[in-house]
Amino acid sequence: MARSNETFNKKEKEKKRLKKQLEKKEKTAERKNNSSKGKSLEDMMAYIDENGNITTTRPTNNVPKVISAKDIVIGVPRQTAEEDEPLKKGEIIFFNSSKGYGFIKSLTMDENIFFHVNNLEFQAKEHDKVTFLVEKGPKGLTAVNIVKAD
């Protein structure tokens, strides 16, 4: 007896091919039904309302708003200083003398500020009360000109 030339794999490939053809025919029929050919110009128009939103209805108010050039702000407004007093008070909460850095808990800003031993003007230890200036460093705020408070 001779074997059949059709294998399981061939049958599966044929099913997939027929399924793709059927899907393609359905998509073309759907596109034909939903095509915009033959619509009037008014049906294809889109309008922009006074807020910049796209709508299908024609706006009734055609008078444009008058905008003064002084009202337009381009860029970022200048930042105001957080406080008039640049000298801050705080307490050293961590200090590693072998590595030469530590953190100060600021009393006014409620955050920890990094400092390096080069910015100290005295021999520091933990829980010392200090006054300092704050500068913007490459990785965040940094305390400089650190002096022991009396």
Rank of each mutant, 00 (worst) to 15 (best):
E26V: 12
K105R: 14
A69P: 03
S35R: 00
K19Y: 11
A124R: 10
K70P: 00
K10E: 14
K99L: 03
E83M: 06
F114N: 09
K19F: 10
F115Q: 00
K25N: 12
M45H: 07
K139I: 02
L18Y: 07
R17I: 11
I74L: 07
V66E: 06
G52Y: 05
G90N: 03
K11S: 11
S4V: 11
A149W: 00
P59C: 03
S97W: 08
L133V: 10
R17V: 10
P64F: 10
S98G: 05
N61R: 03
H116R: 13
K105M: 12
H116Q: 14
K88Q: 14
E83Y: 10
N62K: 12
I54T: 09
R17Y: 13
N145M: 06
K20W: 08
F115V: 01
K39C: 03
A124M: 09
L141H: 07
E82T: 02
G90D: 01
T131E: 14
P64A: 13
T108P: 07
L18C: 07
L133W: 07
T56D: 09
E30T: 14
R78G: 06
R3W: 14
D71Y: 01
L120W: 03
K24G: 04
V63T: 12
K89C: 06
L107M: 12
R31F: 04
E82Q: 09
K99C: 01
T7C: 09
M45V: 08
E82W: 10
E30M: 12
D110Y: 13
E26M: 12
E85L: 09
T80K: 11
I67Q: 05
F103W: 03
A2I: 13
K13H: 08
A124V: 12
K16V: 13
I72K: 03
N33Q: 08
G140P: 02
I146D: 00
E121C: 15
G90W: 01
K125W: 10
K88M: 10
S68A: 07
G90Y: 02
E91V: 15
H127P: 06
P59S: 01
V147D: 02
T28F: 11
F103H: 02
E85Y: 06
D71T: 03
K10L: 12
T7R: 08
K105W: 09
N96E: 06
E82S: 09
K129Q: 15
N51W: 04
L22S: 09
V134S: 00
E82Y: 11
I146E: 01
E135H: 08
V63F: 01
I67Y: 05
N34M: 06
E111S: 14
S106V: 03
I54N: 07
V117D: 11
F8W: 11
N34F: 05
A29P: 02
A124Y: 11
Y101L: 04
L41G: 07
F103N: 01
K20R: 15
P86N: 02
M45S: 08
K20Q: 14
K27V: 06
G140S: 01
E91N: 00
I72Q: 01
G38Q: 05
A46W: 13
K10D: 15
K39H: 04
K10P: 05
A124E: 10
A81H: 10
N145G: 04
I67P: 00
E26Q: 13
G100Y: 07
I74S: 02
R3M: 15
T142W: 03
L87V: 15
R31N: 04
T142R: 03
R17H: 11
A81S: 10
K139G: 03
N5A: 13
G52I: 07
M44E: 10
K24H: 09
F103S: 04
